[in-house]
Computed example of a mutant assay.
Amino acid sequence: MTESAGLFYTLSLVIYVASGTVFPLTIFGDALARLFIVLLFSYTVFFPVNALTGKLTMLEAAKGIGVQWLWIAVLAVVSRWV
């Protein structure tokens, strides 16, 4: 494989969709929305937009920030290991 631009473009498109940049993650239904919220991508766009527009309760915002800290810890451990 000598040309990797297609792979990077596809990965970028998947990240845009999974982060809520293209449209809200709630459009996917409950099951996929829950999956996207567990992944780290939704905390780049979807979560901050909902927090700033007041769509989250204080408990949901605190839970979201806790998940962000959990991802930071996991990725810090992985980066140290690599």
Rank of each mutant, 00 (worst) to 15 (best):
V45Y: 07
L52G: 02
L39W: 05
L59C: 04
E60R: 07
F28Y: 13
M1N: 11
I72G: 01
T44A: 11
G6S: 12
T57M: 06
F8G: 04
S79D: 10
R34W: 06
W81F: 12
A31L: 13
I72Q: 08
K63H: 03
V17I: 15
V49H: 01
T21Y: 15
I37C: 05
F41S: 03
M58W: 06
L56W: 01
G66W: 12
S79V: 09
V22D: 04
A5C: 03
V38H: 08
F47W: 11
Y16P: 00
S19K: 07
K63F: 10
Y9D: 00
S4H: 11
W71P: 03
E3G: 09
L59Y: 05
F47V: 08
E3A: 11
F23N: 00
G20F: 15
T21W: 15
F28R: 09
E3Y: 09
T26R: 15
A76L: 14
F8T: 04
L52S: 02
L11S: 11
L25M: 12
A51G: 02
A61R: 08
N50D: 03
S79E: 06
T44W: 15
S19G: 14
S4R: 12
K63C: 08
V74I: 15
V77Y: 13
A76Y: 12
A5L: 11
V82T: 12
G66E: 05
V77F: 11
S42W: 06
R80V: 14
Q68G: 07
A51H: 06
A73R: 08
V82K: 15
T53I: 06
F8A: 02
A61I: 03
F28G: 03
W81K: 08
A18D: 06
T21V: 11
T44C: 03
R80N: 06
S12K: 10
W81G: 03
T44R: 12
S79P: 04
M58Y: 01
G20V: 09
F46K: 02
L56Y: 05
W81L: 13
T26F: 14
F8Y: 10
V45S: 04
L70I: 09
G64T: 02
I65H: 03
L40R: 14
V67N: 09
W71C: 00
K55W: 04
L7H: 12
M1Y: 04
F36W: 04
A73Q: 10
V77M: 09
V17Q: 07
S79I: 10
Y43N: 08
T26G: 13
L56T: 05
F46N: 04
K55E: 09
F23G: 00
K63S: 12
T53F: 04
L52F: 01
F28T: 07
T10V: 07
L11R: 14
D30V: 12
V17H: 07
L39E: 01
T53A: 02
W71D: 05
A62E: 07
R34Q: 13
F41M: 14
S42C: 05
L11T: 10
